[in-house]
Design a binder for these strands. Structure first.
Length: 487
DNA sequence: ATGTGC
């Protein structure tokens, strides 16, 4: 067994901080020892596993956050059945590491999904050569810049279409739009969008969305408040033009309509301000619902127990579904602007959907629920989309349904340096030191390029390799970036 | 993640 150089020192340091960690064949097993346990937690500590490429840096803070998540319990009923993390995991600032997956029974943990509800990936391929694309690049970019950054697009909705969106996600929203077309989407091909629901995770609809649009989101004037619908968002979110560089699993790629040399469109975004609003509200409500007689858990991860507060659990899941439905439609609209501009500039170009999948969501799965925070579902045979960093390749994979890692794959390469660190240290560095050479990044904010530069991320290849080796996914195709829009 | 932040 080969170990990272400073492994033993790291393990001793973690032990002093209340964490027992062991390492075997690229898997870390983490367990809280008594010093970090809450006094009412009489049960044995729950172990969590992390898969990491050999020699990869491990952050103590992320391990600690994962161990805390694995040991969330509700004194009135509810426990974690299993917890693990993907190779791209890194510390999160709300106390949950990005790349954590947790299976719970009898409770849900709103903080485990957080604010970025239904952040996810969407991939289209187009019948357009990269040469054709580059010949009209400037015109295409100018039009899309207007859509994504300056709001030249129209996403207005009536209260009826907005309500259908929040309650039913893509299919219900399409039905409402058919009756009363509004906004840019009114120019869309509804039949095509409807037919693409079967290439969208859960059909593009979370069951249990609220039966009305929340008052805070749809005021009495009947127009939906712009929660950022049809915008990319910050951080690692992007819209990217790519080319399918290599097809590895030809049979699967063929079934999914992906061929070598095709142009590809990859979207990484979520539910924007709606998720922020709902996630923040339920972080507070979960805290308020904690039994008054007990002190707060040090991790500040408050579960909602089915036994203690069944109505709160179902209200939370409804609220999460509401934001998730919005997230599905946000990605769909980002793709629609792309397709509309593609047709405008290049004529009759088909750009069918390959797949759309959330990597930040709670699903009824396993013994109760599985919450993935920055981890892509990787059920058997399911398409998995893993973006690289800016300038690095992205991957289309197929899930293998690996139960040990809760049927989940990474959602990227993983951050190596925080945005703050990059904004402080990156300004003095050259583009080549930041890995920014040959990257065609369209953004209005120079600091985004630096904060999100390839140097801020870990290398994607070892992250993919270790997941293939662990039988979490198989590689279907590799896409190389051509041009990236960052907000 | 968020028109943010040490």
């Amino acid at each position: 067994m080969q170990q990272p150089k400073n492994l033993n020192r790291l393990l001793r340091a973690l032990s002093r901080q209340g964490l027992d960690v062991s390492y075997d064949n690229k898997v870390y097993s983490i367990c809280l020892n008594s010093s970090l346990k809450e006094n009412w937690q009489d049960a044995d500590a729950q172990t969590a596993e992390v898969l990491l490429p050999e020699g990869f840096p491990v952050e103590a803070k992320a391990l600690k956050q994962l161990a805390s998540l694995a040991n969330v319990r509700h004194p009135q009923g509810g426990c974690v059945c299993r917890a693990c993390a993907t190779p791209d995991f890194h510390p999160g600032d709300s106390g949950v590491a990005i790349g954590s997956i947790v299976e719970t029974a009898g409770m849900v943990i709103p903080a485990a999904v957080g604010s970025d509800i239904n952040c996810g990936m969407r991939l289209h391929v187009g019948d357009l050569s990269i040469e054709q694309f580059l010949s009209q690049r400037d015109r295409f970019v100018e039009l899309l810049k207007g859509d994504y950054f300056f709001g030249t697009r129209d996403v207005s909705m009536t209260a009826t279409t907005a309500g259908a969106m929040f309650q039913h996600g893509i299919p219900g929203w399409l039905d409402a739009l058919r009756d009363k077309p509004t906004g840019s989407a009114a120019n869309s091909d509804f039949e095509q969008l409807a037919s693409e629901c079967d290439r969208t995770f859960l059909g593009g609809s979370m069951n249990g969305g609220v039966k009305w649009a929340p008052e805070e989101l749809v005021p009495n004037d009947g127009l939906v408040r712009d929660g950022g619908l049809g915008t990319i968002g910050g951080g690692n979110h992007f819209v990217e033009i790519q080319v399918v560089e290599e097809v590895i699993d030809r049979a699967t790629a063929y079934t999914w309509g992906v061929r070598s040399g095709q142009i590809a469109f990859m979207i990484h975004s979520g539910s924007r301000n709606v998720g922020k609003y709902i996630g923040g509200m339920w972080r507070d409500r979960a805290c308020e619902a904690w039994p008054k007689t007990l002190k707060h858990p040090e991790s500040r991860l408050f579960p909602l127990s089915v036994a203690a507060n069944p109505e709160l659990v179902s209200s939370y899941l409804q609220a999460e579904a509401t934001a998730a439905n919005y997230g599905f439609i946000n990605r769909l609209l980002l793709a629609e602007f792309l397709r509309l501009r593609l047709r405008q500039v290049f004529g009759d170009v088909e750009a069918p959907l390959v797949y759309d999948v959330p990597h930040n969501i709670t699903l009824a799965e396993g013994a109760g629920w599985v919450t993935r925070k920055g981890a892509c579902p990787a059920h058997l045979g399911q398409p998995v989309i893993v973006p690289g960093s800016m300038g690095a390749p992205s991957y289309l994979l197929v899930g293998k349904g690996n139960d040990r890692f809760l049927r989940s794959a990474s959602h990227g390469a993983g951050r190596a340096r925080s945005r703050f660190d990059m904004s402080r240290e990156g300004v003095d560095k050259t583009d080549s030191a930041l890995g920014l050479t040959g990257v065609d990044c369209i953004t209005l904010r120079e600091e985004r390029r630096i904060e999100e530069a390839p140097a801020a991320y870990k290398p994607i290849q070892p992250v993919i390799d270790v997941q293939v080796e662990a039988q979490i996914v198989g590689v279907v195709a590799k896409m190389k970036p051509v041009l990236t829009f960052k907000a």
